[in-house]
Design a protein around this nucleic acid. Sequence first.
RNA 1: GUGGGUAUAGCGUAGCUGGUUAACGCGUCAGUUUGUGGCACUGAAGACCGUCGGUUCGAAUCCGACUAUCCACCCCA
Length: 428
Amino acid sequence: MEQLKRPNGTADLLPSDTGRWQKLEGFLRETAGRFGFQEIRIPTFEQTELFSRGVGETTDVVQKEMYTVSAGNSSYTLRPEGTAGTIRAILQNGLLNEALPLRVYYILSCFRHERVQKGRLREFHQFGVEMAGSSSAAADAEVISLAGQILGQLGVRNTELHINSIGCPVCRKHYQQVLRDFFLPHREQLCETCQERLEKNPLRLLDCKVEGCKEIGKDAPLIIDYLCEDCGSHFEKLKSTLDRLGIAFTVDPRIVRGLDYYTKTVFEFVTTDIGAQGTVCGGGRYDGLIEQLGGNPTPALGFGMGLERLLMTLETQGITLDEPRRCDLYFAPMGEAAGELAMELTAALRKEGIAAQTDVMGRSLRAQMKYADKIGARFTLVIGDNELEQKCADLKNMLSGEKITIQLDDSFAERFSAIEIADRLAKE
RNA sequence: GUGGGUAUAGCGUAGCUGGUUAACGCGUCAGUUUGUGGCACUGAAGACCGUCGGUUCGAAUCCGACUAUCCACCCCA
């Protein structure tokens, strides 16, 4: 029978991986919690319209990367990102009627039908936060500082924070016209995609990698010089607050996020250590989104952090999160009677909070010792006919090789004995 | 959606100027005299050489298509 394979762009997380995932997730929850964020969990799929309306009809994500299925008369889509669904849930459950600003975080998987490459999967995991109710630059600084602290505390190096402001719909519209006017005379020298961008999304003209376009765009007007008064002072305030918090950043006027909902502040944490897809964290403000999704106009912002990319960065930088496999005691019985006793005692030890294992392969003592060594057991306990007779057991410290004989009570297999062994382990 | 690279046991690789039982390391399992791990030694299991088709007396080896995978563009986390 033919073996079936995983779909392209998905991953299996094996026992050798899940330890570091758990540790990372625990760290993220803990850190987000310290910033006052609480977890929210939302459905894996939503009505397709949520994304076309929230993320934006013209974005690549919506136009060509969504996994959409129709069921009955409805069209559903696997979430390509976390913000739209989170905002939907916030509105549907009236969370904005509670103390503001509302702060939520999530850890979830996203789905995008893209061409797979390093750092880009079709199902990938994101840690994200959303903060709603504040239009102040202080909120921006707080969200950015959470992301910065996460990376900092993990010990991530070679990562830069880039920030920019893409203005509000009013000043952006004005700027787009200025940009068009600038590029129009060079139309013929632009690459094909840029000629399209000129019509559809002029902001993108700025971060084209084609040499010719780069050259032309070198002296292009920058949006930060065309911000309206409100957007401009918001950006100034953000920069001074970041300075005050000691968060290093560079203003990168080329950053343009590909999701339509962003306004004013956009930012990303970028590393060069993991290949071309170096954005580990990206986010920004989206003051129009909540209204766009049917809520009362409410300012908000957030970010998403790609967990695969983060883990990849940690790995190339030699930062480990692994926890060794835990086995406090391996119980090595010899013979059938001892084997049955071992099953009972092992179960009892586990109730005492001890990570215990015993033989289920019918192996020789020598083979059992090898196995105990491989799984990293701290102690082994050997019981054979002699020990059964004398009501004792050999306890061996696998690190030092030291061996002691411990005397056990009459009621060998009972709780009491388990506690006694547990005590001995604790003393060692 | 576009371009390029790669595909041989669980993992990492050799073999690829076509020639019979496809090799090595790691890992797994068993054993090295009667009841004690790490080292060493011995042995075993494990591969339709990605799939289909073509060239040929003969294909892991050459050619084509498909699929998977990797890298990059694009886009984004």
